[in-house]
């Protein structure tokens, strides 16, 4: 029969591997059988609005990593130290029913951390979902107007740009399928809608995600700081072709958008 040491060792693997694998993924070092660990953490972010999201992601992981390490190590230690086995002295188990001070400590400290986290993130949430970007126009601050309308449908994205009249949502809008072009280096606002069922407009490389809801018009905003091509994914189950509902977004230097759209 397996001894208590074996089980304590098994439980000790939880903090060791749990934290160890995260460290390997974050550092991106090493490989197994040709598979590189370099691509296991957050993909590169090109959206300055979302830098704070990555920061929160790392911060919460560090806090949780510490809690995981401490609690599961204690668990493994307890199994190693307090398991009954033939060699153990005849000491009885402690008779302790409660400890008020301890209860207060392990209520107050996590509560303080959680309340801190709750308030610390509010500004990031507001910047990404509530406070639409502003620009200075003729000395006045104005909300950035949507530069394109993106409509989700089974299974692709229709992109509409303002036509010659310069206004979005009129009959002369230009329509492109599955290809969005945005300028680099300044705030972009998009109008997102859905034609048939729920979809979600998501660009992992920019940390952008917004469900698009039939019957609702919503805005998403971001800024792309690096020219290149980004994948737009649908991230809300929309039917059998959900997995292939993708589009490309090209981020190009300002002034070139029109050429690319042609």
């Amino acid at each position: 029969m397996l001894t208590h040491r074996f089980w304590a060792g098994l439980f000790a693997l939880v903090p060791i591997l749990g934290i160890g694998l995260y460290v390997i993924a974050v550092l991106g070092v090493g490989s197994v059988g040709g598979f590189s660990f370099a691509g296991l953490w957050l993909p590169e972010n090109a959206n300055p609005y979302a830098n704070a999201i990555d920061h929160l992601f790392d911060l919460v992981h560090i806090i949780c990593g510490v809690v995981l390490g401490v609690t599961t190590s204690i668990l493994a230690y307890v199994v190693w130290r307090y398991a009954d086995h033939p060699g153990r002295q005849a000491e009885p188990a402690l008779y302790i029913t409660h400890h008020t001070l301890l209860e207060w400590i392990w209520t107050a400290i996590p509560a303080a951390i959680l309340v801190f986290l709750g308030f610390y993130q509010l500004q990031v949430w507001a910047d990404n979902k509530m406070n639409r970007p502003m620009v200075m126009v003729e000395g006045q601050e104005r909300a950035v107007e949507p530069s394109a309308l993106v409509v989700g449908k089974q299974f692709g994205w229709e992109v509409y740009y303002p036509g010659p009249d310069g206004v979005l949502g009129t009959l002369d809008d230009q329509r492109v399928e599955n290809e969005l072009t945005v300028p680099v280096g300044r705030p972009v606002v998009l109008r997102v809608e859905a034609k048939d069922v729920l979809h979600s407009f998501a660009i992992p490389g920019l940390r952008v995600k917004q469900d698009v809801v039939p019957g609702m018009t919503q805005l998403v905003w971001f800024q792309v700081d690096r020219p290149g091509t980004y994948e737009i994914l649908c991230m809300e189950l929309c039917g059998w072709g959900h997995y292939k509902m993708r589009a490309r977004m090209k981020a190009v230097a300002e002034g070139l958008e029109a050429e690319v759209q042609e």
Partner: peptide, 25 residues
């Protein structure tokens, strides 16, 4: 975020239950 708190309290109490026991595995 607050609902994480009672779950945490339960976990700490379980650990304290095991601490100093005579665990029958």
């Amino acid at each position: 975020i607050l609902i994480a708190l009672p779950s945490g309290i339960k976990t700490f109490n379980w650990l304290a239950t095991l601490w100093g026991g005579r665990l029958q595995l």
